[in-house]
Design a protein around this nucleic acid. Structure first.
Lengths: 185, 185
DNA sequence: AACTTCAAGTTAATAGCACTAACCTGAAAA
DNA sequence: TTTTCAGGTTAGTGCTATTAACTTGAAGTT
């Protein structure tokens, strides 16, 4: 009975990869266990069940996204920061659909650990918007509008909801324009 | 052995109600069968399995939404039409989360029946935008932008992604403003 | 070096799900 | 009156998550 050397982090990472490959809704602990080289119940020594794994994927994804977004806006401001931030968001969602889908679910109320990584990500976005000099409620609304636009785009892009030949990049660019215009007034 | 008087439409309707109550991802044929007063395998005399039921819910939802959107924009144009259309979209998604979630998935390629109801809904939206006098690609991009914004909003509103006390109605109004501004230029 | 302990595994068992197959039956059509 | 078949049934398969009870090997203790 050789030990597989598993840890909760490793299990979540494998699960995240499976989710990216097969879609979050088809993620199964059986597949994760197989890929970890362990029996299905063996996973429960490291992880509390499927829901806990999904929460883990969500936190992993938010952390990864926050890092990429931060890198994307390093050294730029204003409209350029908005464009880079959005492109990084779109890119991550497209490259990691399973992780991304998990990341959308908000932290459960009282889940301090999850809320912490979520807050860090929001801080990255807020600092990327500094060039617009938005204050208080204006900043909150701006962050919401940006996230709504990026999530809507990523979500519908993945759902293959755009059949027509018009360029998706062009649609994306127009959204950035509209947001930039709105944040400026 | 009394007949239950089921039809495919009735099964889909019951399933849609269950989806609204419990969430699409928790929709189960077992629940639907119970509510129809029939054994689980009995459903298969009317319906081809869970995926087919979800497709049915999607088509039902798109039809219902198209009807409500059309009613909402009857007799108005321009900015007012945009606002009414968006409010109706948001309202439907909030009132029927299961139906709405099913409706997001695009028709499978070659699924003419599904594509037909989808096209009818798009036609409603296009006619609501007539006041902006958009042509060709501009209209396509405008419809995409609108749907992205509405879907992003509805999706995140349901995911409880907005913890802060700022008014969601205010965020929604600002999105309408931004779209209206963008469509005008 | 021998002993103890316990984390990390195992197999077995339960329960819920989708789906298939084989059967039954009553009401309408011939 | 007989036949047919749509609309049901129960039984069975295979997948899933989860719990329980058992085993084992590696690390620490004496």
């Amino acid at each position: 009975m050789p030990r597989a050397g598993l840890t909760p982090e490793r299990v979540v990472r494998v699960a995240a990869d499976v989710a990216d490959e097969t879609g979050l809704e088809r993620l199964t602990l059986a597949t994760v266990a197989k890929r970890c080289g362990v029996s299905l119940p063996g996973l429960y020594k490291h992880v509390d069940g499927l829901d806990a794994v999904k929460r883990g994927i969500a936190m992993l994804a938010v952390e990864e996204m926050a890092a990429r977004l931060a890198a994307a806006v390093a050294g730029v401001t204003g409209r350029e920061a908005l464009a880079e931030l959005s492109a990084a968001y779109r890119g991550y969602a497209a490259a990691h659909p399973g992780r991304y889908a998990a990341s959308v679910r908000a932290p459960a109320p009282g889940d301090a650990e999850h809320e912490a990584v979520s807050d860090r990500a929001i801080a990255v976005i807020a600092s990327a918007f500094r060039g617009y000099r938005l204050e208080g409620g204006d900043l909150v609304h701006a962050i919401r509008m940006w996230r709504i636009a990026c999530h809507g785009f990523a979500s519908l892009e993945r759902a293959a909801a755009f059949g027509l030949p018009e360029s998706l990049d062009e649609t994306f660019a127009r959204i950035i324009d509209a947001l930039d215009e709105s944040f400026r007034s």
